[in-house]
């Protein structure tokens, strides 16, 4: 097993996510081919790969935004099936942050954050709002609570989106290219928030091309191409000593910049 980068980022032996021989098709198109993945509690996994390789599809299968057709996905002991109860159970455990934030534009920042705790966790409104404020403080934008998402910068919006997910008190966080819609000067503030989250022991799966983030935070990097996991290694090894030609090609392309 991989060495924890810092004592704070300890990895335990509990398996949080398990994908066993997962396949998925869009019509005739085979997007995910025999995906096998085990994620332990507290792991920070970065997923990279060329466009169209199925990275988003894979992590979206984990909270059932996409349906897999073959194989097994088990999240925190619950298997994803057509059973709505299982899906609801898993969605309570899994938070997701999107490339385009997907905040609710008709609700204030505070309402965005308190909504799911109130309606899904049945928390009293006051308690939910107090908790939302706590998380907004954690992502360092408590002063924006009464504003609407449309009045915030991209980086601020993404941090609200992170706070909104955290308000559901998830044990796993999925990130799908959280910084790729942001201007360079805002990328750092979002990455800093994510680093803090990693240090708090959150299990994280993160699709990103931010290799600096991968090096400092991830304990494993997964490389996907053509719907398959091609390579999987510790960041150090992955970047300095890639095994497959496709990985080498990909790394040479993204590290040029």
């Amino acid at each position: 097993m991989s060495e924890p980068t810092s004592p704070k980022m300890a990895v335990s032996d509990d398996v949080m996510i398990e994908l066993k021989a997962v396949h998925k098709w869009y019509g005739q198109f085979h997007v995910l081919k025999d995906i096998n993945l085990r994620v332990q509690k507290g792991e920070r996994i970065v997923i990279c790969g060329p466009s169209g390789s199925g990275k988003s599809t894979m992590i979206r299968c984990i909270n059932r935004l996409e349906e897999h057709q073959k194989g097994q996905i088990i999240v925190d002991g619950t298997e994803l099936t057509d059973d709505v109860k299982h899906i609801d159970q898993i969605r309570k455990e899994v938070g997701m942050v999107f490339q385009h934030f997907n905040l609710f534009p008709h609700l204030t920042v505070l309402e965005n954050c308190a909504l799911a705790p109130i309606w899904v966790r049945k928390m009293p409104r006051r308690k939910a709002e107090a908790m939302a404020m706590e998380y907004l403080e954690k992502v360092k934008i408590p002063e924006q609570a009464k504003k609407y998402p449309g009045q915030l910068s991209g980086g601020q919006q993404q941090r609200v989106a992170i706070a909104r997910s955290l308000c559901m008190n998830p044990s796993i966080m999925l990130f799908d290219e959280p910084t790729s819609a942001l201007d360079p000067e805002m990328i750092k503030e979002v990455l800093d928030t994510m680093i803090e989250l990693a240090e708090s022991g959150m299990t994280m799966l993160c699709v990103t091309h931010e290799m600096g983030f991968a090096k400092t935070v991830a304990n494993r990097v997964i490389f996907m191409d053509g719907g398959e996991i091609i390579e999987e290694n510790e960041p150090e090894e992955f970047f300095t000593n890639p095994q497959s030609d496709r990985t080498k090609l990909f790394l040479s392309q993204i590290l040029q910049h």
């Binding site: 909270n63 969605r91 997701m96 999107f98 309606w119 899904v120 997910s165």
Partner: peptide, 18 residues
């Protein structure tokens, strides 16, 4: 309404009617 709104609501665990 952009698809992302439906997805964000789903990902937060909101039911269809909610």
């Amino acid at each position: 309404i952009p698809k992302g709104q439906y997805e964000a609501a789903e990902a937060l665990g909101l039911s269809y009617w909610k």
